[in-house]
Nucleic acid binder design. Sequence first.
RNA 1: GGUGGGUUGGCGGAGAGGUUACGCACCGGAUUGCAAAUCCGUGAAGACCGGUUCGAUUCCGGUACCCACCUCCA
Length: 469
Amino acid sequence: MVEIRLTNTKTRRKEGFTPLDPSNVRLYLCGPTVYDRAHLGNARPVLVFDVLVGLLRHVYGADQVTYVRNFTDVDDKINAEAQRRKGLGSPLSLEDLISERTEETIGWYHADMDALGAARPDFEPRATQYIPQMITMIETLIARGNAYAKAGHVLFRVRSFDDYGKLSGRSVDDMIAGARVEVAPFKEDPMDFVLWKPSDDDLPGWDSPWGRGRPGWHIECSAMSAELLGDSFDIHGGGIDLQFPHHENEVAQSCCAHPHAGFANVWLHNEMLQVEGKKMSKSLGNFFTVRDLLDQGVPGEVIRFVMLSTHYRKPMDWTDVKRAEAEAVLRRWRGLTAGIEPAATPAPAVIAALADDLNTAGAIAALHELAGQGDGAGLLAGARMLGLLTDDLGGWAEAGDEAGALIEALLAARTDARKARDFARADAIRDGFATAGVEVKDTVAGAEWSLATGFDLARLKALVAEVGS
RNA sequence: GGUGGGUUGGCGGAGAGGUUACGCACCGGAUUGCAAAUCCGUGAAGACCGGUUCGAUUCCGGUACCCACCUCCA
């Protein structure tokens, strides 16, 4: 069996992966807070996990893997958006406005991630569906002395967990020395964090032993992972920015509530995304969503390729040069594999690269070599391990019937012109193709064509009118 | 201030203590009516300073620069 090696944030080392139960390998990925369109950075962990889950299913069996990714639908940003709509005069109740907002955002999220070829997880739990489990867990933490209720809040007692800070490599004292912690009068210690907080009448809330309120951010993942995957499971992931405080707090909650379980065995964190060398931010004006890119005509498959061409533990720089290069490579590979069935088994080099801490860039290099050897079947099987060259993602590279017919007619006209040694006419057609975004390759077997970036059907029609056919 | 990560050829981007990464671009050749595409081939690297070693871009230490997190941002 292939040995999978993963860099575990918990140990800061690359380790061989051994599932707790090979017949049910369990993963949890922190999903989005559903208040707005997913930005490009949101797509990175989704794609990393998509490849990881694919690899695990390849190694352990398609039905032997359980993948959970949550939706955070309790959040002040969602509340703020609902209140804004209410302020604009919406007749709906605040509760309905919140529900409307989260439903619409989840719909967008699904559509956008589908467009990148990311398979849906086995479970997509929502925080609002697990409030009772969260309350139970909080009660356990209070009973065990790890949490305390005060002023309508419930706080986690950080000093009660010796390993607090271990995952992110910090000490409580150092963090307090940094003096950037929120000091609240009801906290025993400045680092204590909220498990439950009170809600005003104009905010969503649930009845609890501590009054009407809502959960803090971190408790949902502890409660939902325990419910769906058990107190111990294999892999937990997310962006590196979640390492602290979110994941540190999850560890504290889960390990204290289930002291005999290990919570997540392996922690995987992906580095952040940059745009043209700079951090993506609204203030720099380089902030965009997955949908923005799709609407600009960047195919989902191209986004996926660019994302996977950098190792997940390194910052990924989105640039237009990479976009163009990815597009060209995918066009070439699609041409090479057209009408070919994938090999029965993915090439060992591709699997070996992925098994080595998800080295997707290395896997792509292996695909280049297969392409160079003209091994279309091997290329196709390998690419599909990365979720590339699938039928679902291929629409962008195909011409419609109308365009295809026009191109065939023009190619025939060009062949005739060349036979008649009317090179001026032949060259005019050739140049016209280039202008319209059609790439023509003359081979010994005849002319082959494919669409290039910036294909323009209108220009193609103009070309027909110009030179006749 | 604390913590973690990074610095590879023109560009992107991996691995490995000693043998070509790979892709794009470039250059030479083949091919072509001229091109494009394709094929063959050449060249080009590891921030800086030390150390370990027969040998380091790869390990260790330091310096510089960059980035991220410490703020319910993936």
